[in-house]
């Protein structure tokens, strides 16, 4: 019979009771492991990554990837949970980097002190400088935040301050490369889960409210600018932390820390990984940065291939890997006979 051979695809939700997003009713070890598995893969995978790398060069690539991942995380947090599309990633890296460099060279503080101090103080500086732009929304904030890194880099160049075009040299490195790698990986993991927790608290709800509509936040008696400033402080402190680590890795701080790579690549990673998932951008960086290194063999054609990969992603998986992956993980498909 012909009819017997006809089949169709059946989609079935996995058996887990979900009352509302972020709130699970776990009934068994199986359901618990179902939730814990992806998280454990991420944590253990990231921790094992330096050990699996073939040499110094690729270990360094992983470290840089993690710094980009911090930036991507901060971009995703600002863009999808506060509604501020920030192109100021390079600004955060630059401010954090120069701060760590100055603290290390003039005050003689070791890296374990400069990195957190540069993150906290740098976040403050970035927030203060961005404060006048906070009433702006959407693409207007993006344009203004793009101007900041360009502006600071030209000021340093023109006035020949902070080492001018030569930059600041003679900065201490981390004690060894294992400390360097695991320090950044552990910080990335802590911040990733920290930010995820933050966006689900009541403060995080207010921030999401600011994104959805800030007028209602005002009508509820809350100061929108204050909440935006708080979010920008968190995001810029993450960026500054990355910048400070970068300076200690390269043992040099220069204008190239304000390069637009630090603004653009995190956005590309967010698009690929899936915006609003927070893990997605980290995953996006883990894909994009190594690919960009692999493509160095092609010389000047590198950018062409890089662009092609990006375009392919946007056309075929515009929702992002994580959004797609989550959907596939929570539903499974099977063929059934009709």
């Amino acid at each position: 019979m012909k009819n017997n051979t006809q089949r169709r695809k059946e989609r079935i939700d996995r058996g887990i009771k979900v009352r509302t997003d972020g709130l699970y009713a776990l009934m068994s070890i199986r359901e618990l492991s179902y939730l814990a598995l992806p998280r454990l893969i991420l944590i253990i995978g990231l921790l094992l990554l330096p050990l699996l790398m073939p040499g110094m060069y690729w270990q360094r690539v992983i470290t840089i990837t993690c710094i980009y991942a911090l930036l991507a995380l901060s971009f995703d947090f600002l863009a999808h949970y506060v509604g501020l599309v920030s192109l100021g990633g390079a600004f955060f890296v630059g401010v954090g980097g120069y701060m760590a460099a100055i603290m290390n060279t003039t005050l003689g503080l070791p890296p374990w002190a400069t990195v957190p101090l540069a993150a906290l103080a740098g976040g403050g500086v970035c927030t203060l400088l961005l404060l006048p732009c906070l009433p702006l929304r959407g693409v207007y904030f993006a344009i203004v935040s793009l101007m900041y890194p360009l502006f600071v880099a030209r000021v340093i160049e023109a006035l020949d301050i902070l080492g001018g075009t030569d930059g600041i040299t003679g900065i201490d490195s981390f004690t060894n490369r294992w400390v360097e790698q695991y320090f950044i990986i552990v910080i990335l993991l802590l911040l990733l889960f920290g930010v995820r927790r933050l966006v689900n608290t009541d403060i995080g709800l207010v921030l999401r409210g600011v994104k959805d509509n800030d007028q209602a936040i005002r009508a509820s008696g809350m100061n929108v600018t204050m909440y935006k400033a708080m979010a920008v402080y968190i995001a810029s402190a993450m960026g500054c932390l990355g910048g400070a680590c970068l300076v200690h890795i390269y043992m040099w701080s220069g204008i190239s820390q304000f390069a637009l790579d630090f603004s653009i690549l995190p956005i590309a990673a967010t698009v690929i990984g899936g915006g609003g998932t927070l893990v997605g951008p980290v995953l996006g960086c883990l894909i994009l940065v190594p690919i960009s290194e692999l493509l160095r063999d092609f010389g000047t054609l590198r950018i062409v291939f890089y662009a092609l990969i990006l375009v392919a992603f946007i056309i075929f998986r515009s929702e992002g890997i994580m959004v797609y992956g989550q959907r596939k993980y929570q539903q499974f498909e099977r063929w059934t006979r009709i």
């Binding site: 009541d202 403060i203 709800l205 207010v206 999401r208 409210g209 959805d212 007028q215 209602a216 008696g221």
Partner: peptide, 23 residues
């Protein structure tokens, strides 16, 4: 508001958690 301004991406009850969080 005449044109309703809920927090569209949040569940209805989470819409009220925000004002309950206000000073």
């Amino acid at each position: 508001f005449q044109i309703m301004r809920p927090y569209y991406t949040l569940p209805a009850y989470k819409n009220l958690v925000i004002p309950l969080f206000s000073p």
